[in-house]
Amino acid sequence: MSEQKTKVAEAHTGATADHSSHKANPVRSALRGSSGRNLGLIIALALLFVVGAVTSGERFLNLENMLTILRYASIIGVVSIGVTFVITAGGIDLSVGSVIGLTTVVASLTSVQLAATQSSWILMVLVALAVGAGAGLINGVLIAYGNVVAFIATLAMLVGARGLAELISGRSTQIVSNREFLQVMRSELLGVPILIWIFAIVAAAGWFLLNRTTFGRRTIAIGGNLEASRLAGIKVKRHLVYLYVLAGLTAGIGGVMFLGRTTAGTSTHGLLLELDVIAAVVVGGTLLIGGRGTIMGTVLGVLIFSTLVNVFTQNNLDTSIQALARGLILVGAVLLQQRFAARGPRRVKA
């Protein structure tokens, strides 16, 4: 230990390189960096707000509607945070939607609800989280140690988890009867529904985890160059498992939120949610090939899509048009990002 400290100390005294060079033009470097990409997303979001305000006026621009947008964004948002980590590391998780369905079914089983009534509503939450994390663990072990391609492993989980949820529930809807649970999930804090708070907390925690911790550094390093990370001594396989567990865990949280919002558990919860999640993450600026991830971008991506849905609903537009618009936004955002990225220092690669 002492040896390391002296090395660090040496480095301190030996530091002569100028600090200024990379800060030479803060505006330009900010635009080129992640904040520049986020700026583009904020502009897109602002444009959507203008469209909403122009077409629906007061109906769109009021606090209640803002909360509606956020509430709609909250579940996809939470899961998107977990998936952002997986994608940043160069992986993919297609199973989160199905896993949500499974977690709601297991957590709302009569036996679980009975036990929760006898002990605490938290038991339902823990069961949902455990099921989500367990599914993630299976994904992670298959991918890291079984060398199954992530796309296939999580595709199998997508199909399998949905099937298991149908088997367990007998395809019936299981009503949540635990009053305390429902009360908590419907409660508000400072006038903001708890679902939105959960999204905010998960997003903040995710940002911190990705940008300020060794866990995040490992994630980005593995996504940037898996072999180099392995040869540098990073325990790549173990970390991959953690990442899929994390994604499963956020699916578990999503399951709890579904139970609260719909007051029922069913195997159809979260159907096709993985597509919205991946779209939001990619629009947000996280690279599908890994090595670059942005929580802020993911949050903005989720908000863009949920605002879009809201604007369309306000104008009584067909859901098919909605779907078409989302597809166009996805492609448009990626095209724009590539132009943005091309202006950055990455260009030197050529």
Partner: peptide, 26 residues
């Protein structure tokens, strides 16, 4: 060896960044 799009310093500390961290905080 390298994570080409990451800055020099993160490449230098790729096998030691945990030492500089405290309780997981970089």
């Amino acid at each position: 060896g390298l994570i080409l799009d990451e800055p020099i310093f993160k490449n230098v500390t790729l096998s030691t960044f945990e030492r500089f961290a405290r309780g997981g905080y970089l």
